[in-house]
Design a protein around this nucleic acid. Structure first.
Lengths: 209, 209, 209, 209
DNA sequence: CATGAATGAGAGTTCATTCAT
DNA sequence: GATGAATGAACTCTCATTCAT
């Protein structure tokens, strides 16, 4: 799907506001005003508020997909190093797209519309497929031990999510309460990468079995 | 604070609906209707919709507090075993109160009202303080290695959150799409406990350093 | 009608709030809260909000009536001096009861309930009857000239009303914007008396014909 | 400010109902229904009920302003005649706009919103400035004696107000209880003009000093 | 006799959407 | 293709009043 400049403007603003105030807590007026377009435009361009959310998900999902493929092409064979790269990649990606990620994780448990729901699950699944593949490969190579693969994926996304969702809490822990979101993100990025690599490394390492 | 039976009824229903459709997506009408009380009762009892959320948080928070103390009194000295117990406890607690937990994690990044926000952060902090204490103790005893304590806590809550928030996704992975929430929870409970104990165990174990 | 202490308390507060925020703009809750009685008391004691207004009017009206009689008994014969005394009396009375007076003048044009409406008109009529009598007497004695008696009465009450209703305006004219109501009243009292005596004096004096 | 036809319709109806039932006693539903517009239009056009009142005041105030200038241009030099003309003008104006005038005099003592309050006081002040000017001029020319100028203005507006506010009372005095408002107004107009000219004339005339 | 609990009705406002142009 | 005007529905909250105790 191709979007006009105005449509992109709306999508960006919608993402920002949905992340900040939730889908339900954001009115199309808010979006229209911040995007400096007429209120009627949202219905006109996207059909409805719900369709706008759908469009946003489609838009971000498609954008993300390409990057996954790119990573796969790099020729790294050692499972341990592959996993480290994957963690770098996921942390980077989720933290850069933290707004979209927050919307997704909040909405996933709420959306009842079949099609959209499946779309969201599908995105999640695609994103995690790589992790599964690498883990299974490592197990085959007797480098990784037997673990709960699904929950290992839950740990990776869960840990990163936690960092984006509970900014207020972690800022307080760091005694840096009025940190801008972007500053916060860049401060946490390396910490999260290091933590997850160590965590998942020890978790998977067959020598620890 | 003591609540009457009708007030409890409202709180219970509010929790259910806030979890299901978000705070913003739930109207006081919805709550009144499901709780089978007059719509004016919500304002009458709690003052406003926001105060109802506040009351809910206070109600659930106080309920949880006692349990933490109780755990502390059990005389377990081995840090590894202590941590295992803690994980059992947290998984149990978050999964049993998954609705409240979801509300909290969704709302934490959105509530702007100072007092309520601090309350929520406070609850989170109190809940995690025990984990911090056990980790630090284990490190002192040279049983645990040096780790990022804050992020270790993020991993614990993040992993559990992930399981409650992304039911749809994990159901699909298990090919059990129409599972009731309670069935899903009981199915996941032991898996999550086992996974986290293994994960955090390997993470903290000084022998893996 | 005899009122209990609590009822009087309610009546006083009602008068204060009706004057300040109008009958419609005052809720029974406001009254109950300020009078420190249970909300249900207003309906319980007076039947309804409207009946409370009725009771208030009755209460204040009866209180005022006695004073009129008292004045009549003083043996002053000169119409000019009689009129001066009457003006003193009315200014005093309206300014002292400015709250009740404001309620009356605001409500008179709005009350549709027949009985209450008549009651209010009756009070006004009784109050003014004395003026009419003195003017007619003065005319009979060839001391006062022919004037529009009804409108002369309108001038007296209108002038005083103006002073109580437009405090903000007159305070601004006097460069004393934050004057307390009671201070304002005592400041204006003599001014209004002097003005009205001079005004009505010149108006009625047959020598000015 | 320019108003559309529908907006004017709302303003007219609002004026009518505010005058009849007071601002607080009139609901936006009442206005919408009588003006035959959707209830949401009031917020849509004016922002809120309070802003509607503000708009009404602005609308009526601006309408009146032009007329004052017009009067000033007529070349009348004799202060007595000037005052007579002014009285004719004010009586005419207040009685024609009796509804707006009533709203103003009722609301002036109640509005707490700073800006609107000042606006109202400003209107009153502008309206009365001319009277002050003429009186001072007459005093300079030794035609008028020394009087309380502010209260002389209070007398003029107070007398006219009294006539508009206490229709019920004066109708009863005239034994014409079921008079239409417009009939009542036209009946009183000349009476009020004559009365006030005589009253204020005698009041100001230096020969009566 | 007095009152806390409860309620239906209605308050002002905002919502997402539609429609005529 | 784009938009200002308009709308019905729904929102949260407060109203005056009633009723069981």
């Amino acid at each position: 799907m191709e979007w006009s400049e105005k449509q992109l403007q709306i999508l960006e603003v919608a993402e920002e506001l949905f992340a900040e105030k939730s889908y339900e807590g954001t009115s199309v007026r808010d979006i229209a005003q911040k995007a400096e377009v007429n209120i009627a435009m949202i219905s006109y361009y996207f059909g409805s508020k719900e369709k706008l959310l759908e469009a946003l998900i489609e838009y971000r999902a498609s954008y993300a997909a390409g990057v996954v493929d790119e990573l796969e092409k790099k020729g790294i064979t050692d499972p341990q190093r592959k996993m480290d790269r994957l963690i770098d990649f996921y942390v980077e990606r989720i933290l850069v797209n933290h707004r979209f990620h927050n919307i997704m994780s909040r909405q996933l448990s709420m959306i009842s519309e079949e099609k959209l729901r499946n779309k969201m699950i599908d995105i999640k699944q695609k994103n995690m497929e790589l992790v599964r593949k690498v883990i299974l490969e490592g197990q085959r190579k007797k480098v990784f031990r037997k673990v709960d693969v699904d929950l290992t994926m839950a740990t990776i996304t869960g840990t990163i999510s936690q960092v984006t969702l509970a900014k207020g809490y972690y800022c307080k822990l760091m005694n840096a309460e009025d940190l801008e979101f972007s500053e916060y993100i860049s401060k946490m990025k390396t910490r999260v990468k290091t933590h997850l690599k160590q965590l998942i490394g020890a978790h998977l390492d067959i020598k620890n079995a």
